[in-house]
């Protein structure tokens, strides 16, 4: 059992002028652990996700990540080259809108193969084989490998985006409302798939969602955000079954009534 966290977030705040994006967020993420950040739109959860994943520079605070060599590095003090390398190898980022995370005008195979080629794979046949395997794991039929994502349904695109991210065996995946734009029936299938993959691969993940059902299904632990602050933080079952903050209670009850 590994006894050190993968990610340490300390005192992260982001201000837009005088407006708060997120304020003084602290937490640690452990290998294989799935953390859900929930809240209404405007609560600061996406700002926080972007700060942690280095897509947005926080106003204060630090984010440390345990590299594959076991050493912690502050992500805002590593070079851009290291950061970009990290992002395309050891990390994944699943966008709400698949078009933001895919190359819409190249084939599904090339979408999955891109990260492999970026790290130096130069055997077409092997790249294609790996892409085929991954399409299978996300339940996309192998005969669609040469089709462009433009020809895919919303759910297929999202699954393709996931395959594209996981092909390099990342240890940490960020997901921003991964089921956001999908029909309810498609959502259920995707969540099932994601849960299976996360378990099988022992991935750590940070999932931003406004949907408590997603948090319940995917996450071990959750943080509730309101107006840029983390107001409640705990094991997912505990937070959902026994919410302590009035706001969380409201959130939970409003969902469960539906």
């Amino acid at each position: 059992m590994i006894d050190t966290p993968l990610l340490k977030v300390s005192g992260v705040s982001k201000f837009y002028g005088s407006r708060i994006g997120c304020k003084d967020v602290n937490f640690e993420l452990w290998p294989g652990e799935v953390l859900a950040i929930v809240g209404e739109s405007g609560s600061g959860k996406t700002t926080l996700l972007n700060c942690i994943s280095t897509r947005l520079l926080p106003t204060t605070g630090s984010v440390e990540y345990r590299m594959r060599d076991g050493n912690f590095r502050d992500l805002y003090h590593i070079s851009e080259a290291e950061r970009r390398f990290l992002m395309r190898t050891d990390w994944g980022f699943v966008h709400q809108n698949p078009a933001d995370g895919l190359r819409m005008t190249v084939s599904a195979g090339a979408n999955v193969g891109e990260r492999l080629m970026a790290v130096g794979d130069r055997h077409y046949g092997k790249i294609r084989q790996t892409a085929t395997d991954w399409l299978g794991r996300v339940e996309i039929s192998a005969d669609r490998i040469d089709d462009q994502p433009r020809a895919f349904s919303g759910g297929m695109r999202q699954r393709l985006q996931i395959a594209r991210n996981l092909v390099t065996g990342p240890r940490l995946v960020f997901m921003d409302e991964p089921t956001g734009g999908l029909d309810v029936s498609v959502q259920a299938r995707l969540l099932d798939l994601v849960r299976g993959l996360v378990n099988d691969l022992g991935l750590a993940a940070i999932v931003v969602t406004h949907d408590l059902a997603v948090a319940r299904l995917l996450s071990h632990r959750m943080m509730v955000m309101k107006d840029g602050h983390v107001i409640e933080h705990g094991l997912t079952d505990r937070v959902l079954d026994d919410p302590r903050e009035p706001y969380t209670q409201l959130l939970v009850s409003s969902i469960l009534q539906v």
Binding site: E80, A81, R84, R88, R103, V106, S107, G109, A110, G113, E114, R115, M117, A118, V119, R122, Y124, I127, R128, I145, D146
Partner: peptide, 22 residues
């Protein structure tokens, strides 16, 4: 210029991959 500086040439092979696939 950034891609050259960081030696990020994966996209170049994506183009070639796509060529072979099509």
């Amino acid at each position: 210029r950034k891609m050259h500086a960081l030696e990020e040439y994966g996209l170049m092979h994506v183009k070639l991959y796509e060529d072979i696939a099509q």
